[in-house]
Design a binder for these strands. Sequence first.
RNA 1: GGCGGCGUAGCCAAGCGGUCUAAGGCGAAGGUCUGCAAAACCUUUAUUCGUCGGUUCGAAUCCGACCGCCGCCUCCA
Length: 468
Amino acid sequence: MKIYNTLTKQKEEFVPLNPPNVGIYVCGPTVYDYFHIGNARSFIMADIIQRYLRYKGYKVKFVMNLTDVDDKIIKKANEEGVDAKVIAERFSKAFFEDIEKLKIKKADIYPKATEHIGEIEDLIKKLEKKGIAYKVNGDVFYDVRKFKEYGKLSGKKIDELESGARVEINEKKHNPLDFALWKNAKPGEPHWSSPWGEGRPGWHIECSAMSMKHLGETFDIHAGGHDLIFPHHENEIAQSEGANDKPFVKYWIHFGFLNIKNEKMSKSLGNFFTAREFLQKYSAEVIRLLFSQTHYASPLNFSDEILNSAQKGLEKITNFVQEISFRENIDEGSYPDIDLQKYYTRFEEAMDDDFNTPKAVAVIFDLIKDVNKIMNGGEKHSGKFYSDVKKFLDKTAGNVLGIIKNVNITKNDSSKEIDSLLNLIVEIRQEAKNKKAYDLADLIREKLSKLGYFIQDTKTGTTIKKKL
RNA sequence: GGCGGCGUAGCCAAGCGGUCUAAGGCGAAGGUCUGCAAAACCUUUAUUCGUCGGUUCGAAUCCGACCGCCGCCUCCA
C-alpha cells in the first residue's frame, strides 16, 4: 500500500511504526460556527482513509481534535455577549450532529484543547528549557531560528518567508516568523494560570500536545486540509521535534480544497455552504460519492452540475442494491460464471494506490454493470449469487466508501407484515394484468408510488422498491 | 516577489514511459426489452490528452519554453 507523503513529496510504501497498530491524527474543527461542505470533504476523506485501513486489518487509533479556545470563538462570544464556553459547546454539539449525518465513523478520541492545558504547559516548559521558546510580557513565542529544519514540510525557507510581503509585524517577537505558544489573556478572555501568568494556549501547540498525548511522540499519519501545511503543520513539527528530538509524524496527508467557481471555499471569502444546508437537499451518500469520484488531494470544483451527476450515479447504485436485495430472497437458479474475487482485487489495488477512490468507484460501477447484464439475461440465478454480490458491495462501497444506502425494508416484525401485504398487492396487480385490466394495474402502480413504493415489471417477475 | 499545484471528451474525472486507437460517472443520440411505465442492457459520443519544441525505438505520461487557472506565504479543512 502506498501513500503520498507531503513531507517527502512522493508516494511511499506504507509501513506502520508498530503494526498492526496505526495512529492517525486529523486536525478537527475550531468550534465557532457550523462547518462548511469544504470542511466536510476533509472529514469524509479522512473517514474513508481510516475505514480502509480497518478494512485492511489494521488496528486504527483515530484521533480528531476540537479547538475550543481560539480568537474566533472569543470574538463570536463577545458578539453574542455570552461566555466562550457557550459558543464552543453549541458548535461542538452541532459538529457531532453533522458528522453523524454524513455517516462519518466516530473517532476513537476527540480531545479538546481546554482539557489539555496541563499537557500544553508541560510542552511549552520543555521548549523553554531547551531555549527554543522565550517569554515576552506574558506571551511565549517559539523561536523559529532555533529549529534548523524549519520549513521542511512546506518547502519554505525562513529567509524567503521573511522577505515575503505579508508577515505580521510584532515588535515583541525576535523574528517575524516566531509564533505564539502561550497568549497573555486580555480582560474578558478565557484564561488559565501558568508559569507565564494568566493566559491561553496558542493554536499550534494544542495539536502537538494532544497528538503526542494520545498517539505518542512519533506516530504514523497526520492529516488535514492543504491550507494547514503552512504554518500550522510546519509549526507542529517544529514544536514536537524541537521538544523531543525525534521524528514527529511518518506520513503527512493533505486534502485538496473544495472550490466554488474555481475559488477556494472559505469562511473568510464568504462563498460557502454549510454541511447542514446540504444535508437537507442531498443525502450523505450523494456527497460521499461526489467526493469519492475525485482524488482526495486534488481540488474539486463544486457546482450544481456535478452534484446532480453524483445524485444520478447514486440512484444507479441504490436501484441496483434494491434489485439484488430483492432477488437475494426469492430467486432460485444457477450461479453465474463470474469471479467476484476479481472485483475485490481491483478495488484493493485502487485503494492501495494512495487511496485512489475514483478508481475504486469505477470498480463498483463495473461490477454493477456486469451483474445487471447477467440479470438482463432472463435466467434466474441463485440467491447465494445475489448475496455474494451484496456482500461485496457492503464491504467495499458500504463499509469503506459509505455510499450504500440501507435498503432493507424488512428490518423488524412489523415491516415483515408490510412486506407480505406488498406482495399481496403485487399478486393482485398481476391478476389484473393477466386479465388485461391495465387501467386497474396502472392505478395500483400509481397509488403505490404515492405511498413511496415503485413497482417494476421485469423479465423475471415484478419487483417492488421503496423510495429512499 | 518566494514556494507549490493544475490544464485529459458537452460536464466531472482516472491514467503518469509501451497493455492508451485513454477507465468510470453524468449528459446527448439511436436501439432492445415492455400492454404502458420504470429500471436495465446494447451501439454511438477524445486517433487524442493547453500550445510549441526536445529526449526516446516508443510520451497524455520525462525535459524546456510559453499561455491559462488555482493555492500557500495572515485565521482557514
